Simulated assay, not measured.
Amino acid sequence: MNHLTETRRRQAPSTTLLALAATAALLAAVPAQADTGKLLLTGGVSTVEGAAGGGISPWAVIGSQATEGEKGVSAYLSRVETRDHGLTAAGVAVGFNDRLELSFGHQDFDTGITGTLLGLPGLHLKQDILGAKLRVAGDAVLDSDSLMPQIAVGVQAKRLRSSGLDGTLDALGAQRDGVDLYVSATKLFLAQGVLVNGTLRATQANQNGLLGFGARLGGADNGYQLMPELSVAYLLSKNVAVGFEYRAMPNKLQRAGAAAGLGDGLRADDWKDIFIAWAPSKNVSLTAAYVDLGRIVPATTGNKKQTGVYLSAQIAF
């Protein structure tokens, strides 16, 4: 029975990847629109939380192809597969006047072996994220010949849906609702084809919120922490970019896990990725990346780092 469960678990992500590949092919076939809107890839792609930016970190750019005086919309589908887990993310973002962005993202996390060892085979953790981002200064393209970055402030309200893990999270003193606040600064050196983004996030989230928010067991820290994030991208051509991302993650569950007798079994690590993004047209972008999400519940995964692949398709108007 355990072997059958594991086989089904492996097959499900493969099916998702095939669906993502098919979606990407359809998006790539969408005809290019009139030559308006933003320069290719300067509006970023969609993060796994729904905001415009890189794959794992928001940038100060506003999503969609809309520029000043316009409204626009983007939609995305992403899949992450690591050694023991899988994450599917999808959502939409709406941009207003290249000034305000409203977004919605949904995440479905396959706990894999962790759920099985907890007596919850097939356990999925699902999270909804409502986001808003406001550009408060600068313009990444118009200020590309100066040192002035584009600056934006953002908020993400997250809710982890009820699951079989509720009792465990309650015992650790973790909540199922949380709010992230962040400020991002994006600097585009257009002549050199280089984009640099720095984000500072105030958060209580454990593994981006998929393991709840904060912890109280054993006197664990339940307050907000400031976490830095960094993205660097280089344009190989007008429609292809490569880059690197780093996102520091809070480690709020480690002390609570130790109080529960798990030692470092709930330790969390920072997230990293190396990506390549391709825009076959102004309205479509496809992203692939190698990801390193560090240890996720190492008590059930043999202390292994969760490395793997990330694929994402976005359409924007």
Results as ranks from 00 to 15, higher is better:
A140L: 14
L142I: 13
L142W: 13
D143A: 06
D143P: 08
S144D: 10
S144Y: 11
D145T: 12
L147E: 09
M148C: 09
M148A: 15
P149N: 08
P149Q: 08
Q150K: 05
A152E: 03
A152P: 04
V153E: 10
V153H: 10
V153L: 14
V153Y: 03
G154Y: 00
V155T: 09
V155Y: 02
Q156M: 12
K158P: 10
K158L: 13
R159S: 15
R159Y: 14
R159D: 13
R159C: 08
R159H: 15
R161M: 05
R161Y: 05
S162V: 00
S162R: 09
S163D: 00
G164E: 01
T168H: 11
T168G: 11
T168C: 07
L169R: 06
D170R: 10
L172C: 06
L172S: 04
A174Y: 01
A174F: 01
A174E: 01
A174V: 00
Q175K: 14
R176A: 07
R176V: 08
D177W: 02
G178W: 02
V179A: 08
D180T: 02
D180L: 05
D180F: 03
L181V: 14
Y182M: 03
Y182V: 06
V183L: 11
S184H: 07
S184F: 05
S184R: 01
A185P: 00
T186V: 08
K187C: 13
K187I: 12
L188Q: 14
L188T: 14
F189R: 14
F189W: 15
L190T: 10
A191S: 14
A191C: 07
A191Q: 13
Q192L: 11
Q192V: 03
G193K: 07
G193V: 08
V194K: 09
V194W: 13
L195I: 15
L195S: 15
L195C: 13
V196K: 07
V196W: 10
N197K: 10
N197I: 09
G198E: 00
T199S: 07
L200D: 04
L200R: 02
R201N: 02
R201G: 00
A202H: 02
T203L: 10
T203F: 10
N206W: 03
N206H: 03
N206G: 02
Q207C: 03
Q207K: 09
N208D: 14
L210R: 04
L210N: 04
L211V: 06
G212R: 05
G212H: 03
G212S: 06
F213M: 02
F213N: 02
G214E: 00
G214D: 01
A215L: 01
L217C: 06
G218T: 12
G218P: 10
G219R: 00
A220K: 02
A220V: 00
A220M: 00
D221F: 06
D221H: 06
D221S: 04
N222D: 15
N222V: 07
N222Y: 00
G223H: 05
G223E: 01
